[in-house]
Design a protein around this nucleic acid. Structure first.
Length: 925
RNA sequence: GCGGAUGUGGUGAAAUUGGUAGACACGCCAGACUUAGGAUCUGGUGCCGAGAGGUGUGCGGGUUCGAGUCCCUCCAUCCGCACCA
């Protein structure tokens, strides 16, 4: 009987669906386990073999945990708001909802082929109104909360308002951007507009002006990613820095907790390090510098207060608010010109351009707080308005950027480090003794830092301070295909839409572009196109892509709830995600925002945990191997081995990898048929009459013609083979190029497994006592497999199965017990074939996934003897089989008496003999 | 520049705590069966050498009875952040 994988897999996919095999509900009698994949954005290109890698791993683990007796939540859904569908809508006029629906259908079809154990009744789509209703609801909670430093948590804004009414904001200890101080009377006298303006500076979700990359031609704000060389990626239009009223999230309030929380979760160090760098905690001091002949104080933040006597100039960001005020009349023109020039560069470009040192002198001077020396104030675009205070005290001898700036503009570089040469570059190490620094002279950096902060605080011009690089996250987008805000405007103030009117659904529009006057696409919607229409107008911005993905793991716990984002009992039952698998590209985006929202929801009492993902694994990327052909100046296509020395005039063209033979030569007729430009292609073949190509590793992508889809492989080899092969490729975390060649090895293995049950052309197992050899093989495999799974080593798991089947085949094992246990072990990896075998073994059992996972019994593995490797000076020379009952001394004696030993001793006496019992013998000559 | 990771056969890789380097596969070679196939099975396969043997985990050094594994120097590749005060 042949292994007819196509028929078997189709059959079981249908039965699993009919029997609801993977449906899961809250069952408090079993321990729960939550296995989550990062849900995909359903792009039009469909899945390639790289996408399922993580899903296969998580599916294996979920099935394993289920067999181990856990109640496993393993859901899947779609992050279905996103730019590509909107772009497509702009080009074709097709509503993004339609595009998205079609793409999801295609994804579902492909996912189903792979035999995943998702509970599809729990599917979520972020673009579905029944889902984004709750994204809007969570936004409202953020709007209605502020961060209370004393309680160290997000707290309802109503309690802050009560405090304002009682005593103003004099004593409040909250995270805010409010410069203003007021008492109860002053608060009471504020107009509603003024009160709201104050509250906006406290809310977790707030409106504020922020710097954005504005593209006037596209009428929209762009992400850093969407800008290439200072112009928009799409269309190549200029981009400028502009201050715009935007919704933001006060994630900065959580900087310290986001940092501390990392210590309590099981993520890789590399990933935690990335988040730590992103949060960027640094300790130092704030210092105020008085501007000469004015009342202004410029505040700076420095990590090196110990170097304060090395300050020889100051640099402000070109956007710094004081620039216009302090600029001397003679310098105005130059400064304004520089400001304009800086505004044309994006932040990323400004940061990337290290070589060109630019700046302008304001003509103003600050006074050094300790020496009263005059310090020239410059502006320069290496200082960023959005970090720290947007101003630095420049210490050229201790900071390379300050040093370069000083050299370029011929500013003084005083040396405050004893015995350090700064003629070529700054000395940025913190191990020099401080000199020329008044009361800091002779101190090391650490002591000088402490003493400087004490002095700064005593003078009342600053204080020791912790600074975070993390910035508040801009939360609005001028796009169509995203969640509308549950917000309307009345008298110019934002108001929340009442819960009873949620969701505010996306209104239909006549075009998916900004309006003539630069308003977002939603401004095009007719009044009656809105599901509710309140105040003067609705909010026209939509939420960013990360809104929906910041809480989807909670919705899976109770996806159909109409009364709440999820039932509190279900939230408590399923709790944290126990295992989260996804790509590392989300290290500082999604994973930070999801942690942030989780903490807010925890603070507000909606959930019982404040870290969403207890364990996280990043799967590596599967890369494609592109095929590169060489086109000569004569327009002929040259075989790789026919290229001349001088390749001038040659260009590389990528061709579809399906057009290659196994020997990496092109199927010439297929190439001609592939694209019209090759219809009459001429070739320069090699001696074998072939045209060879170069292979190069790229990202797998349609544009490189190197995509391999799971569909074709499922058709040709079956999903079980593909699942095991993807795992067999190497460690899950590692990136690796895809090569289909090896898949036959795994496919052959499954056939071999199948043959264990079909020796005589039909299904047959024997019920006799299993042999000791078979039991040993089985239990060795149980142990190895369980260990491998617990450390997520899926690749070595697959090879263990191969070894097991090879051994059982050798032993001609046809024993029911042995083969049944093996089948359960293998079911997580290859569910279809194992379910088929199981149905033969246990006809009354509805599914193998209710079976019990085999238990390892070490007694089957006990050995009476061991094959000792005998080495001389660490080099293995021969082996000797000895009873394990022999003691170390006895082993030594027997080994020394061996003729082989005598041969290698060459008549010398051994200096030392080391015997590690049951491991090795080493003789030192 | 800073941070992180990785370097092992022709290829993907294994070696979990310092203890037989290269498991398991692909590919290749030889053979069997079938004389149509990219089907199946058996044996071999790190490199050098006819052989005994030598040699071998990016380079160089160190610790150790013993190092792919630990330490130091360097080199290469990849990823992340990139003027963060």
């Amino acid at each position: 009987m042949d292994y007819t994988f196509n028929a078997i897999e189709a059959k079981w996919r249908q039965i699993w669906q009919e029997r609801n095999t993977y449906k899961v509900s809250e069952d408090s009698s079993k321990p729960k386990f939550y296995v989550l994949d990062m849900f995909p954005y359903p792009s039009g290109a469909g899945l390639h073999v790289g996408h399922p890698l993580g899903y296969i791993a998580s599916d294996i683990f979920a099935r394993y945990k289920r067999l181990k007796g856990f109640n496993v939540l393993h859901p899947m859904g779609y992050d279905s708001f996103g730019l590509p569908a909107e772009q497509y809508a702009i080009q074709t006029g097709q509503h993004p909802a339609i595009t998205t629906k079609e793409n999801i259908a295609r994804y579902r079809q492909q996912l189903d082929l792979m035999g995943f154990s998702f509970d599809w009744d729990r599917e979520v789509r972020t673009s579905d109104p029944s889902y984004y209703k709750w994204t809007q609801w969570i936004f409202k909670q953020l709007f209605n909360a502020y961060y209370d430093h004393t309680l160290d948590k997000a707290t309802p804004i109503t309690s802050l308002i009560r405090t304002f009414e009682q005593e103003g904001n004099i004593n409040t200890n909250a995270v805010h951007d409010c410069e203003q101080r007021f008492d109860a009377a002053a608060w009471a006298a504020f107009s509603p507009e003024a009160k709201e303006a104050v509250l906006q500076q406290y809310r977790m979700a707030y409106l504020a002006e922020s710097w954005v990359n504005w593209c006037p031609a596209l009428g929209t704000v762009l992400a850093n990613d969407e800008i290439v060389n200072g112009v928009s990626e799409r269309g190549g239009h200029p981009v400028e820095q502009k201050r715009m009223m935007q919704w933001s999230m006060r994630i900065k309030a959580y900087a310290e907790r986001l940092l501390q929380g990392l210590d309590r979760i099981d993520w890789t160090d590399a990933l935690k390090e990335q988040q730590r760098n992103w949060i960027g905690k640094s300790k130092g001091s704030s210092v105020q510098f008085a501007v000469k002949d004015t009342d202004l104080q410029i505040e700076v933040f420095t990590t090196r207060p110990d170097t304060i006597f090395g300050v020889s100039f100051m640099v402000l960001a070109p956007e710094h608010p004081y620039v216009a005020q302090i600029c001397s009349p003679g310098q105005t023109e130059e400064v304004q010109a520089y400001q304009q020039q800086a505004a044309l560069k994006t932040e990323r470009d400004r940061q990337a351009d290290v070589k060109n040192i630019t700046g302008a002198f304001t003509g103003a001077y600050a006074l050094h707080p300790f020496t009263d020396q005059q310090i020239p104030i410059w502006i320069g675009d290496y200082v960023l308005a959005s970090y720290g205070t947007g101003a630095v005290m420049a210490v050229p001898c201790g900071d390379q950027r300050d040093y370069d700036f000083a050299k370029h503009f011929k500013l003084p570089i005083p040396n405050i480090f004893a015995d350090q040469d700064i003629s070529e570059s700054a000395y940025a190490e913190k191990d020099a003794v401080i000199a020329n620094s008044d009361f800091l002279d002779g101190l090391d950096a650490k002591a000088a830092m402490e003493k400087a902060i004490v002095a700064i605080e005593a003078k009342g011009i600053g204080q020791g301070k912790t600074n975070y690089r993390l910035r508040d996250a801009v939360f609005s987008r001028q796009r169509y295909w995203g969640e509308p805000f549950p917000v309307y405007y009345q008298d110019g103030l934002p108001h929340l839409v009442d819960d009873s009117l949620l969701p505010v659904t996306l209104p239909d529009v006549d075009a998916y572009l900004p309006t003539q006057d630069g308003e977002p696409p939603l401004a095009r919607a007719a009044k009656d196109a809105w599901s509710c229409q309140l105040g003067e107008r609705m909010e026209y911005n939509t939420m960013p892509g990360w809104a929906g993905s910041s809480w989807y793991f909670l919705r899976y716990m109770d996806p159909h709830n109409q009364e709440a984002f999820a039932d509190p009992q279900k939230l408590t039952y399923w709790n944290q995600v126990d295992l989260y698998i996804g790509g590392s590209e989300h290290a500082t985006g999604h994973l930070l925002y999801a942690r942030f929202w989780t903490k807010v929801l925890y603070d507000l009492g909606f959930i019982q945990f404040d870290e969403p993902f207890a364990k996280l694994i990043n799967q590596g990327m599967i890369l494609g191997k592109s095929a590169i052909a060489y086109m000569g100046p004569d327009q002929k296509m040259y075989s790789l081995d026919m290229l001349p020395e001088n390749k001038e005039g040659f260009r590389e063209v990528r061709i579809l990898i399906d057009l290659l033979n196994d020997d990496e030569s092109i199927q010439l007729d297929a190439l001609k048929a592939w694209q019209p430009q090759y219809a009459a292609q001429e070739f320069v073949c090699n001696a074998d009459g072939k045209v060879l190509v170069k292979r190069e590793v790229d990202k797998m992508s349609k544009r490189w013609y190197n995509v391999v889809t799971p569909d074709d492989l499922c058709e040709k080899y079956g999903a079980d083979t593909l699942r095991m092969y993807e795992m067999f490729l190497g460690p899950l975390e590692q990136s690796k190029p895809w090569d289909t060649k090896g898949i036959t090895g795994v496919h052959g293995f499954l056939k071999k497994y199948w043959r264990l049950f079909h020796l005589n052309g039909h299904f047959e197992v024997t019920d006799n006592q299993p042999s000791p050899a078979a039991l040993k093989t089985l239990h060795k495999t149980i142990k190895k497999l369980t260990d491998d799974l617990e450390r997520f080593s899926f690749n070595t798991g697959v090879s263990s199965f191969m070894i097991c089947v090879n051994e059982l085949t050798e032993q001609k094992c046809n024993n029911r017990h042995i083969l049944e246990q093996l089948t359960i072990l293998m079911a997580p990896y290859a569910p279809h074939i194992c379910e088929e075998i199981w149905a033969q073994l246990q006809p009354t059992s509805p599914t193998i996934f209710n079976a019990e996972y085999p238990v390892f019994d070490p007694s089957y593995l006990t050995e009476s003897s061991f094959d000792y490797p005998v080495s001389f000076n660490g080099k293995m020379r021969f082996k000797a089989t000895l009873e394990l009952a022999l003691s170390v001394d006895e082993v030594k004696e027997v080994i020394l008496a061996k003729p082989e030993t005598q041969k290698w001793l060459e008549g010398k006496d051994p200096k030392k003999v080391i015997v590690v019992h049951g491991k090795i013998v080493n003789i030192v000559l």
